[in-house]
């Protein structure tokens, strides 16, 4: 069984962002990147599937990113993915076109399972998994916190606003990981060194026959800082008084 894990590199959330000169994007020059945390969870789940239900599984990490993005793909290799594929693309790309490129890769690789993050923590779109499943005509299971293999597919726990839903999907399928699916392992130093020897293939959207057709045009960005100044009160009574003055409680 082949498992394909889309891996996005995203700016490390623990840093202060700046905007570029015309405020249409963040200033990428001073940013450190990490593997999207939800994609790390997806890689971990693929590894666990290979360690338990499907020892023969081949795990392929795929990223659409500029050439430097290879560094973050190597994180997936160091965790234990078998090979990595970098689709080189400079600049912004929206979820629709990411899904189109991934679909083209999937037509070549023919995996049985796509395991990916529910959301990239830069655009916070939460769209690519659903778009991809729709384009492929495959069933989808989003926001997943547990996966069990059955004789004819996957039994899945999904985290919804109203509670945990259990569904069953046949394979091939697209599964998007929520935070509680697992806790990703850290790559050990030897595995990081070993990962340097694992193959990374490079391709481009054009080689896959895809010409991006933008659906989202970003006009501008604004950094949001706190507009508030905190008044410190010293007792619970004072706090209630302030809240009454603000007319938010009676």
């Amino acid at each position: 069984m082949k498992i394909l894990v889309p891996c996005k590199r995203v700016p490390d959330p623990d840093q202060k962002l700046r905007l570029n000169a015309d405020a249409t994007d963040i200033d990428g020059s001073a940013v450190t990147y990490i593997l999207n945390p939800f994609d790390a969870i997806a890689v971990e789940e693929a590894l666990r599937i290979r360690e338990t239900a499907h020892p023969e599984a081949e795990i392929i990490a795929v990223s659409i990113a500029p050439a430097e993005g290879e560094t973050d793909l190597r994180t997936a290799l160091a965790m234990g993915a078998d090979r990595a594929l970098l689709i080189e693309h400079e600049g912004q790309i929206d979820p629709w076109n990411v899904a189109r490129i991934l679909a083209a890769v999937i037509h070549q690789e023919k995996p049985a399972l796509i395991l990916m993050g529910k959301q990239a923590v830069d655009d916070d779109a939460n769209q690519v998994g659903q778009f991809l499943a729709a384009q492929l005509g495959w069933p989808q299971a989003t926001f997943v916190s547990k996966i069990e293999f059955t004789t004819d597919g996957l039994r899945i726990h999904r985290e919804t606003d109203i509670g945990i839903e259990i569904i069953h999907v046949t394979l091939p399928a697209v599964v998007t990981a929520d935070l509680r699916l697992n806790e990703p392992r850290y790559a050990s130093l030897p595995s990081i060194l070993k990962a340097k020897k694992k193959p990374t293939e490079h391709s481009t959207p054009a080689k896959l026959g895809i010409k991006p057709e933008p659906r989202i045009r970003l006009l501008g960005m604004e950094l949001i800082d706190s507009q508030r100044t905190c008044e410190k009160v010293t007792t619970a009574t004072d706090l209630l008084d302030r809240l009454r003055e603000s007319e938010v409680i009676e």
Binding site: P11, P13, L17, L19, I26, V121, D122, D123, D124, L218, L219, G220, M221, E222, L223, I224
Partner: peptide, 9 residues
């Protein structure tokens, strides 16, 4: 976007 650090138009 970016956990609300950015408001995009």
């Amino acid at each position: 976007m970016f956990a609300g650090a950015v408001n995009a138009t």
